[in-house]
């Protein structure tokens, strides 16, 4: 009889410990998801809201990604828009010039296969999928040079697809922008 009671007592203890741990696990997961949601809403680091398209067959003929429109543009409100395309195995422009301490929007797409880019030393990291437009808000803290590799396998020349980003002083950028409509640092 005694062993029977011990057994059911042990079972109750086991079940209780297990329930406590399950509750704790749910709390941990809830906390992590809550943190991600909070940061997403309050610090505006959210993914692009809507899906935009661009036909890679006519990119070079019309629309915002024609060659003369690529590069950095100063908007009327003081923000900057950078337009770029990726293709096997380079970016256009290959060197992007942007001001520090300024809200910047990258608008980019691919002319052939799937590419991507990240800017080393920053959290800027996105994909370029042919047929679709990537729009990404970014802000650079300080002037400096960064490398910008393609981070998605795009064919046998993938390892050679490295662009550059030159972050310059805000005032210097304004002077350059006054002289030229679309800026790049490709010389």
């Amino acid at each position: 009889m005694a062993t029977e009671t011990d057994h059911s007592l042990g079972e109750a203890v086991a079940a209780r410990i297990e329930r406590r741990w399950a509750t704790l696990s749910i709390v941990i997961v809830g906390l992590l998801v809550g943190m991600a949601a909070y940061i997403g809403i309050h610090q505006a680091t959210m993914p692009q809201g809507r899906v935009e398209t661009a036909d890679p067959k006519t990119l070079h003929l019309s629309g915002e990604f024609i060659e003369s429109n690529l590069g950095s543009e100063m908007e009327a409100d003081g923000s900057v828009t950078v337009r770029a395309i990726g293709q096997q195995y380079s970016f256009t422009p290959q060197c992007v010039v942007v001001p520090a301490e300024t809200p910047i929007t990258f608008r980019a797409t691919s002319a052939d296969v799937v590419h991507g880019f990240l800017i080393e030393g920053t959290n800027v990291n996105t994909m370029l999928v042919p047929g679709y437009v990537t729009a990404l808000p970014v802000r650079f803290k300080a002037p400096g040079d960064h490398v910008m590799p393609c981070q998605e396998f795009c064919g046998i020349g993938h390892q050679g697809m490295w662009g550059k980003v030159k972050v310059i002083d805000k005032a210097a950028f304004r002077d350059l922008a006054a002289a030229k409509r679309r800026l790049t640092c490709v010389d």
Binding site: I26, V29, V33, G40, V51, G116, N125, T126, A135
Partner: peptide, 25 residues
């Protein structure tokens, strides 16, 4: 980081990814 899926479904999938940690814990 892909442009062809909107923010809403990325958030949904992120939440469910959190849930899949549960069986491992």
């Amino acid at each position: 980081a892909d442009p062809q899926v909107g923010a809403g479904f990325k958030f949904m999938h992120s939440v469910f990814t959190g849930l899949v940690a549960l069986p491992t814990l």
